[in-house]
């Protein structure tokens, strides 16, 4: 299979190359400029995190500068939709030098790992983060099985 020592050497080199790519995963994570690299996901705004806390899910979304009125959240079963509009206006009497934050309307739909009880969902907005607490529906909750 490996006729020469150099073949084995080459194989390890290839593995090193792969390791180099993995080393970069975290540095390419969370960048705000330069979308389009191999590991980043293009066009997912707002960015979200989803945590499973047993009885409930917690969804955190980055929505800087948005207030309650700008945001709309819809839930049905395990389908969740966050939509909103962000408007960046030049304050009255000022002129703009630099404008990196753009105005946009957005919709993002997400599929949750299981169904949630939409009547008990709560949402809070703090420091530009939207936190949705999504209690799982009874059928989806983890259950302790007693062994007889």
């Amino acid at each position: 299979m490996f006729a020469r020592m150099s073949d084995i050497d080459r194989m390890f080199n290839a593995m090193g190359l792969l390791r180099g790519r993995f080393d970069n995963i975290f540095s390419e994570f969370d960048r705000t400029v330069g979308y389009g690299d191999d590991w980043s996901v293009v066009g997912n705004y707002p960015r979200t995190n989803l945590y499973d806390k047993g009885d409930l899910f917690e969804l955190v979304a980055e929505v800087p500068g948005l207030s309650n009125e700008d945001l709309d959240v819809k839930i049905q079963g395990n389908y969740l939709e966050i939509s909103g509009k962000r408007e960046v206006e030049i304050p009255n009497g000022y002129r703009a030098h630099r404008n990196e934050r753009g105005s946009a309307s957005f919709t993002r739909s997400l599929t949750l790992p299981s169904e949630v009880d939409s009547s008990r969902v709560s949402a809070t907005l703090k420091d530009g983060l939207l936190v949705l607490t999504l209690p799982k529906s009874e059928a989806a909750k983890p259950r302790q099985i007693s062994i007889s």
Binding site: F29, R47, T48, N49, L50, Y51, D52, P113, L129
Partner: peptide, 14 residues
């Protein structure tokens, strides 16, 4: 510094 509790299903920011 985000409080990240529970098992992450996905994480797009940290």
């Amino acid at each position: 510094t985000l409080t990240m509790e529970g098992a992450a299903e996905w994480e797009e920011f940290g």
